[in-house]
Design a protein around this nucleic acid. Structure first.
Length: 266
DNA sequence: GTGTCATGCGTAT
DNA sequence: TACGCCTGACACG
């Protein structure tokens, strides 16, 4: 569900499916009636993702800003699809496909300047790489007197990482989440950023988070991994590390639970 | 049916 | 640090 990979995937799929199409929009739940009326009959011209934010641009110009929060979810259907659930805030169709959105924290129409403001307050996005990302990340980490585990959940540090990726990425690069962000070496930061980019790209493609190397669980391919085999650390407290059998630990960090292997993540 | 939990985040204290 | 907000899935009786 909604970490950065989900958001970028939604942008890509919705652009493919609906860009250039005239949209009929409504709000089954009734909490976005006015907004839906403003995009009803407009043509979707572009869909952009930035970290965990989505921006849908319409012609005549309207910008729909969506943030899925913890529970937000899209559901897409060929044709009309089933009736929307009670919580469906926004529904639209172009006649060929139907899209439902429920549970999102933010569903609003904004001005272009608002989009810029939102983009300006988030950090480098591993799924929208720019040349200076690594420098921005290193500079940002060197300024923070918090643990790397807490830093990774801060969207100003990296835009798009959530609680699953934070645990998994730190496992993959062998860094203890409790280590002070400032103390990471240049090469630690570089490895972390490369792994972040790699994993989010894989997640965007697959539509789910799978970080485990199939060889570590005796499987042949990533696709064949069972749901219970896809992650190394997240929610595995008390279970043996998939690489060294040491029991996975957990604690609170940055207001959320985190899990790590005390042996692999020195 | 009820209770709990969740891949988020802003605001109040 | 706590709480509220958004919804739905699943465990439990």
């Amino acid at each position: 569900m909604p970490e950065g990979h989900t958001i970028h995937r939604a942008a890509r799929l919705h652009r493919q499916r609906f860009a250039g199409q005239r949209i009929k929009a409504w709000s089954p739940q009734g909490r976005f009636v006015d907004g839906a009326a403003r995009i009803d009959g407009a043509t979707l011209s572009d869909v952009r993702a930035a970290g965990k934010h989505l921006f849908y641009e319409f012609d005549p110009l309207e910008i729909l800003h969506i943030h899925l929060g913890l529970f937000g979810r899209f559901r897409g259907f060929r044709g009309d699809g089933p009736p929307p659930t009670e919580g469906t805030r926004l529904a639209w169709t172009d006649g060929e496909s139907t899209l439902y959105l429920a549970g999102a924290t933010i569903v609003e129409l904004i001005d272009p300047e608002d989009e810029e403001r939102i983009r300006g307050r988030i950090g480098p996005d591993p799924l929208a790489r720019r040349g200076d990302d690594l420098d921005r990340l290193a500079a940002s980490l060197s300024r923070r007197s918090i643990s790397i585990g807490a830093a990774l959940l801060d969207q100003k540090v990296v835009a798009g990482i959530g609680n699953v990726y934070r645990a998994e990425l730190l496992f993959l690069v062998g860094i203890d989440p409790r280590r002070p962000a400032q103390e990471l070496s240049e090469s630690d930061v570089e490895r972390l950023w490369d792994e972040t980019t790699r994993q989010l790209r894989l997640g965007e493609k697959a539509g789910r988070i799978i970080t485990v190397d199939p060889a570590d669980v005796g499987a042949k391919s990533r696709r064949s991994l069972d749901r219970s085999e896809r992650l190394y650390a997240y929610k595995r407290d008390g279970e043996p590390c998939r690489r060294c059998e040491t029991l996975i630990l957990s604690s609170e960090m940055g207001g959320r639970s985190i899990w790590w292997c005390p042996a692999c993540q020195g």
